[in-house]
Amino acid sequence: MPSTDDEFIALDGVEKVFDVRRKTGFLRRERRQVRAVDSLTFTVPRGEMVGYIGPNGAGKSTTIKMLTGILTPSAGRLRVAGIDPSRERARLAHRMGVVFGQRTTLWWDLPLIDSYRLMRRMYRIPDERYAANLARCVDLLELGDLLDVPVRQLSLGQRMRGDIAAALLHDPEVLYLDEPTIGLDIVSKVKVRGFLRELNAQLGTTVLLTTHDLTDIEQLCRRVMVIDHGRLMYDGELDGLHRAGGAAAERTLVVDFERELPPLDLGPELELDIGEGVRVVKVDGVRQWLAFPAGRSAAPLVARIAERYPLVDLSVREPDIESVIARMYARDTPVAP
């Protein structure tokens, strides 16, 4: 069945159940079923960059493996670009790229450039296209000094950059990224994120990103899906995920003063402006952190501080995504965006 741009990736009631056997006695083994993915339904339009997050064991990697054809769903229907991945894996391979943070697609004992040359032959990439793609990746991912280095001698961060380049040499229409910034320093993370943004904007590559570094999600994705125990708990915009914490969610006002001050005493009259729940949560030299309800404006609080204290700088931080997700897991029920 052909795909539409609105349903480039489409899952409908997809499940994955594993049979697990464990030893219960000298000659006894118990067999039980583990449901890794449970009635998963969602679509991803062509060209969208989506964050796919959840705790360890939530079903993220299992989903990616079904999308790439490595695993076959136990039930439900799954299509990528109109292709059933498990039945036409070889055909789909030419249209997708995959990066697994803890595993490499590079040849361990060969120089990095030799891995790329082998991939050019495997994917039958035309010489001109291969040269252009390699040059772009080498430049943006800063791989020039690493091309003649055997893969086994690369650091984890260097290998990750090498793997990202390898996944893009054949111009895939969809890219699955599993922990793409693992092992990277701050500067390298910024470069990789910029590279992925450019890839998505210029080439329209569809990207499904799983990561424990939620800064990756915040800086790359407008849409985020949260999965837990194989079920989709949230699917919507990143801003909506912040609001999903409800009344328990808090924003943080970070204030820098001209001199060190004791924890601020803003007075009971502040409650008339912003309501209850404003409190100082941390003091470090001239900087103080104040928490206040996420659903309320920071303006009255900022005005009161500026009126009473020698203010130098301030910023407002949105609720921590990890905290919101933790509350979502505690509820164990899907949250509407």
Rank of each mutant, 00 (worst) to 15 (best):
9 I>G: 06
122 M>N: 08
263 P>T: 08
308 R>Y: 05
8 F>K: 11
274 I>H: 08
116 Y>A: 09
153 Q>Y: 08
133 N>G: 12
182 I>N: 06
118 L>C: 12
107 W>T: 14
112 L>T: 08
179 E>C: 05
332 D>K: 15
322 E>P: 00
157 G>L: 10
239 D>R: 05
260 E>V: 06
220 L>W: 07
75 A>S: 12
302 V>T: 03
161 R>F: 05
218 E>N: 15
53 I>Y: 01
90 A>S: 13
276 E>G: 07
235 D>C: 01
298 A>Y: 03
159 R>I: 03
55 P>I: 01
275 G>I: 06
142 E>F: 06
273 D>M: 10
85 P>A: 14
35 R>W: 09
336 A>W: 11
140 L>V: 10
264 L>H: 06
300 P>C: 05
58 A>V: 12
149 V>H: 11
163 D>L: 05
281 V>K: 11
146 L>F: 14
3 S>E: 09
221 C>K: 09
313 D>N: 14
322 E>F: 01
209 L>C: 06
218 E>S: 15
107 W>P: 12
72 T>R: 13
221 C>M: 10
322 E>C: 04
181 T>N: 03
149 V>W: 09
87 R>Y: 05
190 V>C: 01
233 M>N: 03
150 P>S: 07
299 A>N: 10
121 R>I: 04
56 N>L: 00
96 M>N: 05
51 G>N: 08
134 L>C: 07
183 G>T: 12
11 L>M: 08
47 G>H: 13
185 D>W: 01
84 D>A: 11
288 Q>T: 04
236 G>F: 09
247 A>V: 07
305 I>E: 08
323 S>K: 11
59 G>Y: 08
194 G>C: 07
4 T>P: 00
261 L>F: 04
101 G>T: 13
311 L>M: 11
145 D>P: 02
97 G>N: 12
240 G>M: 06
112 L>G: 04
325 I>K: 03
94 H>A: 10
70 I>N: 04
272 L>V: 09
112 L>M: 11
61 S>G: 06
110 L>W: 06
246 G>W: 01
316 V>I: 15
86 S>Y: 01
99 V>H: 04
133 N>I: 11
92 L>G: 02
29 R>Q: 14
17 V>C: 03
201 A>C: 00
190 V>S: 09
38 D>F: 03
125 I>N: 03
6 D>A: 14
311 L>Y: 11
14 V>Q: 09
144 G>S: 13
99 V>P: 00
12 D>C: 03
194 G>E: 13
320 D>N: 14
274 I>P: 00
149 V>M: 10
183 G>W: 08
160 M>G: 04
196 L>I: 10
